[in-house]
Design a protein around this nucleic acid. Structure first.
Lengths: 165, 165
DNA sequence: TATTGTTATACTCTATAACTATA
DNA sequence: TATAGTTATAGAGTATAACAATA
């Protein structure tokens, strides 16, 4: 997104046209889903700028690091990534030497994933960058507020409810 | 996402393989960005299921309803949708008879957008569904917690900070 | 028969750039 | 020269389905 609407501050009161930027969101402004999405977008672009890392890659590295030998299906379930879409992501990490994929001798359908030394090093580096970035972006929140936010978010997405009405 | 990992409850303790679903997220679990994204995904699919409405459409209708005569650039800035990507979305709404688009006589470059009666009716209906859905999904939170969440989210994404480190 | 992984495909979302018409 | 809108294109993200190997 190149043109973010965050320029109100240092602007010399541009001549208001029919549609100035003081325009309102209308009822959208009352929807939690909208603000959740919007807040998550604040973080999203920087994930990608961080060393060309795509959406799932940090997640995959983190999970494999924490669960050596985990298989692809399990990783996908944790990250809500479809098995079919996971294949290329892991191909990518394997080809970069960050992960190793081998047939699980206990169940030859499964691929046993482990992180390499290079993968662990890269994960560490990326996590440090992300942490620093998050600290920057959450500067307006107190420590207590950040804890509250994390708690509320977890309680939302750790729900079993999958309403369809 | 067909296979969500929300099935722990009624399952008769499946034989644990090398990689059971009690696997951990690792350091990912400490990142606010991850939990924001994850929580926003809880809401996202249902937006789309609601009458085949795509990502931006509810937002566009809501903004045009609140700001009759607004132009496309302004709508795009409010929703962080690129001007080029907005065209087809508005085409869609116009072709469905939900919006009207006309040349602004004061500035013939601009397109003046207004919502139709059908558009207003549909917006009202969709908003009611979304509100109901949100109430469902936020059932675990008290009213006070919802207010807190909304406040924290707004403070995150209403930031002027766009860190690049 | 069910599960793991793979391939293919299609659709949405996002990003970039070139172009027009107006200002 | 700058802005509003349009068109085209390419890349990610996501969803669906068919298939092989294995259980």
């Amino acid at each position: 997104m190149l043109e973010s609407p965050h320029h109100q501050h240092c602007m010399p009161a541009k001549k208001p046209t029919t549609t100035d930027k003081r325009a309102s969101l209308g009822p959208l402004d009352t929807l939690i889903g909208y603000h959740l999405r919007r807040a998550s977008l604040v973080f999203y672009p920087d994930y990608r700028k961080t060393k060309g890392v795509r959406q799932g890659l940090v997640g995959i590295l983190s999970i494999v690091a924490a669960n050596p030998g985990i298989n692809q299906i399990s990783v996908g379930k944790l990250l809500l990534i479809d098995a079919g879409n996971l294949v290329e992501l892991i191909d990518d990490l394997v080809s970069k030497g960050l992960l190793e994929r081998s047939v699980d001798p206990m169940d030859r359908r499964s691929r046993s994933l482990t992180i390499t030394a290079a993968g662990a090093a890269q994960l560490k580096e990326i996590l440090e960058r992300i942490k620093k970035m998050e600290k920057n972006m959450l500067g307006k929140l107190t420590t207590r507020e950040r804890e509250t936010l994390l708690d509320l978010l977890k309680r939302i997405h750790t729900s079993d409810v999958s309403p369809n009405a």
